[in-house]
Write a protein that binds this DNA or RNA. Sequence first.
DNA 1: TTTATAAAGATAGTATTACTATTATTTGTT
DNA 2: AACAAATAATAGTAATACTATCTTTATAAA
Lengths: 249, 249
Amino acid sequence: MTITRQCFTYNCIREDFIQNTYMQILLKFKINESLFLRDPESSEVGKLIVEKGIDLIRDVGFERFTFKKLAEKINSTEATIYRYFASKYRLLIYILNWYWCYLEFVSKMSLQELGDSTQKLKLILEIITHNFDSDSQIVDYDLEKLHGIVISESSKAYLVKEVDEINQELVFSPLKSFCQFVGQVILQVNPKFAYPNALASTLLETAHDQHFFSEHLPKLADNKSKITHKKYVLNYLNFLAFSAINSYQ
Amino acid sequence: MTITRQCFTYNCIREDFIQNTYMQILLKFKINESLFLRDPESSEVGKLIVEKGIDLIRDVGFERFTFKKLAEKINSTEATIYRYFASKYRLLIYILNWYWCYLEFVSKMSLQELGDSTQKLKLILEIITHNFDSDSQIVDYDLEKLHGIVISESSKAYLVKEVDEINQELVFSPLKSFCQFVGQVILQVNPKFAYPNALASTLLETAHDQHFFSEHLPKLADNKSKITHKKYVLNYLNFLAFSAINSYQ
DNA sequence: TTTATAAAGATAGTATTACTATTATTTGTT
DNA sequence: AACAAATAATAGTAATACTATCTTTATAAA
């Protein structure tokens, strides 16, 4: 399966589906409408805002990211961007919503072929650490950049004073949905397991933290053999997940 | 042991030390000098800046926290605060440095009395989740506020573009030092354990995340019986830590 | 007691940020 | 050809994150 992303639309070519025939399936993730004022997928400028927004947040960090700088990058104006997003914070959550939907989609697609729940969880860990085969097949250039944002900016989406208010707008539903999906796979591996959702969120957060630590604060990690950060995180998460799940309390 | 905090000085009364005699030990944590321009412990305004700074960050969140608002709270001016701290970001790291030093100090003090390394680790988990006996004996009113800041703001100290530059200033040394101390205790429990530092940092980060999730995004946690957030986090961390450590790979 | 000096207070000012508002221009549609 | 809708261009505001300067106050040495 080869997946091509066109901005926030998935272009899904299943080579195995019909022999010698490329079948394109266009997928759109329905993103919570409260996150934008005008649907960025509805126009070229809108797509540019999101696409180059990812680039810029990645390049300068969320704190230094401004709509003014983004406007310059896309040869447009601040006013135009404000017609799509009420604030840079909403744009960040929009991007993360897309990413969380992507995680759940790719997981569900890939897991269909697997019967063994242990193998399912292993595959999920590959997906969240971006050690996934299909990942490299994704033609879209900016999934790596997106992963970079997720690692260093995603917790800023919820670690704010207004968390309860914005949570009411359902903007964290895709994250919860993904974690609960992972939690169900965990329960398939061990139906007696007491912390399926907590472990799911811990694995996702730890994937980000340990990637960041391995790269920037190596004393907070144990990447001794200096393998790639992704590979190190995958090994560690596999160990953590299965030692927890297989320990009956 | 009763501990009283006076701003950034510990006032340590060991009741067991000499019967019926209160012995006061004043402790100061040496905070990295690059974090301040003028030592806030050297004056009353300085102490107020830190003390009321904790209050205000806790009340409005780090994003909305400004030196102007803080100046009003302490009946002083922005200019005065800027003479102590170059930015609100440096003040945050200063506060976190103090907290990380506190964690290591309280851990080392309490662990002296224990021989069994498993008991040591259990006690450390009590300390980082603030389920610790001495915690409630700490007369100082704002340790709870400090814990609140640590839960929702601490990752913002390192999740920034400039992490490598500020890391060179050694401002994360107390965090690394604490995690490595915990890592050594983990190795005492199981000398073959492959991820002592990673597990230590994971436990600390997970303590914050799960506390936050239990409170604000409960679907990302498993606090089913609705016990206190602290108690839930302690149970989960104990499970996570010992299933990892006792699983020989 | 005067005098130096260091901290703090009072005040002003700047560049940037995070917006909002207004008008003009372009673009596609009937 | 007329129309609406989106965008561009421009201006403006309040707040933020500072820097600078000058005055007052407290403290301590001469």
